[in-house]
Design a protein around this nucleic acid. Structure first.
Lengths: 170, 170
DNA sequence: GACAAGTAGCTTAGCTCTGAGCTACTTATC
DNA sequence: GATAAGTAGCTCAGAGCTAAGCTACTTGTC
């Protein structure tokens, strides 16, 4: 008899762990239990985000660019270098995203007055309007998905994930 | 004075939340706190896995194919259809992975005796040996990353993530 | 002030994925 | 047993990414 009650609902990761236990009982599956779930949640929510931003005519990656500029505050200007560093993207990937967003009229590129190698990327008014709407909808969607846990378990989860992030991201 | 002590270490997501609070104080950032961390952890651990499996000559996606066959137990056989459904991949993407793994001699395709439309994908002996080694190393790497939390907080995190996964994946 | 080294952004080749469409085959219906 | 509908796996075009290499410019050193 265990101290912890049997969980009412098993998830797909429980099934995978159980399969491993049958064919490789020696395997240490403690890490998989956590990271397997992290991967699946990231994927499921990522897909949903793609859908949420689609009506705005932008992909999730493009949303991230606009949101980073918006977060920077007025005058909503960063360099491509700062953007690619923040979003952990190569400069090549960033060039492509900026091309698309500039064509859509959501941001503009202008020369950096202090460094002639550099550019400044700035939200247009249309870009600002769009990202302000999109981020509201996106954040609401995330909070809605989290609501199932309740506020206290959510806060606890957030704290545990912070520690895990600090442990993995180095 | 708050009931909860100020966290000793802030992470990148804390910085993002704080930025939003400055420029958009109306924004509901509760969901971002959790999912932002989930995304970053998934990315960081995904990159590390890529490195862990590289010495075996396989990518993370290819690892997943071999691991799914291994988990199925003897005779380590599944159809391409079962594999693509399990790994949430289109059949086109699966064709490419199977091509590479078959060329590497880690699995083989044979006709399904009961359905002439179908194929059976089976681990070769070399594939079995390789995945048994790789999964041991990969699982150890995951558990090592998790060790920072300690066993009790790890179990708690796992339970919270299970509930969140069930809430998001529907 | 000349020159080596470093940095910013872009281009290109190569990779892997998706989505649409194909052929071959199986299942259900009459 | 003919035929319509469904399913298995493959091919191909298109999208987005990385890694390497390019030009233009800046910084540091003497």
């Amino acid at each position: 008899m265990s101290a912890r009650p049997e969980p009412r609902h098993a998830d797909p990761v429980d099934a995978i762990i159980e399969q491993w236990a049958r064919v490789r009982p020696d395997l240490d599956t403690a890490g998989m239990e956590v990271f397997g779930r992290v991967y699946r949640i990231a994927r499921a929510m990522g897909d949903r985000h793609e859908q949420v931003y689609a009506p705005f005519g932008i992909s999730r990656g493009e949303f991230d660019v606009l949101a980073t500029l918006r977060r920077a505050g007025e005058p909503y200007t960063l360099s491509p270098r700062q953007l690619s560093a923040t979003l952990m993207l190569t400069t090549g990937g960033m060039t492509g995203r900026l091309d698309k967003l500039e064509r859509a009229g959501l941001l503009r590129r202008s020369p950096d007055p202090h460094d002639r190698r550099g550019l400044q990327v700035t939200l247009t008014e249309e870009g600002l309007r769009l990202i302000d709407e999109a981020v509201t909808v996106g954040a609401a969607e995330q909070s809605r998905a989290l609501a199932a846990l309740g506020p206290e378990r959510s806060a606890l989860l957030s704290d545990l994930l912070r520690d895990l992030l600090l442990a993995t991201e180095r």
